[in-house]
């Protein structure tokens, strides 16, 4: 059901700089994502863009659900909470991967296409030595995605 928030659609239109913002979330570690979540919500409000929260889960049972369907429900609930808290239009896009640790980047690239995203806002750590061997997910997305990517450090 589409519901309007206080700021929804007031600046939304064809001339918007961004119309769909995607932000990847790890529901098990939300604490470390706060800056990116706030930033994404603010940008969504500012540009009147829709915000989509993307989460990638394993197909095996995990802390966030017995199966991908339960995980998807949690992600939707999270999106609804965020929408209410920030007064924006938000949706959830849950994905299931065979090996989420290594398939995360590929899934995020896929999610950009599937959701029609034109801006990705994502949290990433401050680069260290290991990033030369294993680039961060944010780093890889920024380097290879065809859409704008804003990497929020810290």
């Amino acid at each position: 059901m589409a519901l309007s928030g206080p700021r929804e659609n007031d600046r939304k239109g064809e001339n918007s700089v961004f119309s769909k913002i995607m932000t990847p979330v790890d529901l098990a570690h939300l604490g470390g994502l706060q800056r990116a979540l706030d930033c994404a919500a603010d940008l969504a409000g500012h540009y009147g863009a829709d915000l989509v929260y993307v989460g990638v889960t394993a197909e095996t049972p995990g802390a966030l659900g017995h199966n991908p369907a339960e995980y998807a429900e949690r992600l939707e609930a999270f999106a609804a909470e965020q929408a209410k808290a920030h007064g924006i239009v938000a949706s959830a896009h849950a994905m299931a991967a065979h090996d989420p640790t290594t398939d995360l980047d590929d899934n995020l690239f896929k999610a950009i296409d599937e959701t029609g995203t034109d801006l990705v806002v994502m949290q990433s750590h401050i680069p260290n030595l290991t990033d030369y061997i294993w680039p961060s997910n944010g780093g890889k997305l920024a380097a290879h995605a065809k859409v704008s990517v804003m990497v929020v450090r810290g």
């Binding site: 589409a2 829709d50 999106a79 007064g87 239009v89 938000a90 959830a92």
Partner: peptide, 8 residues
């Protein structure tokens, strides 16, 4: 507010 175009 969630919209009804949720694409899982």
């Amino acid at each position: 507010m969630t919209d009804d175009t949720t694409n899982q």
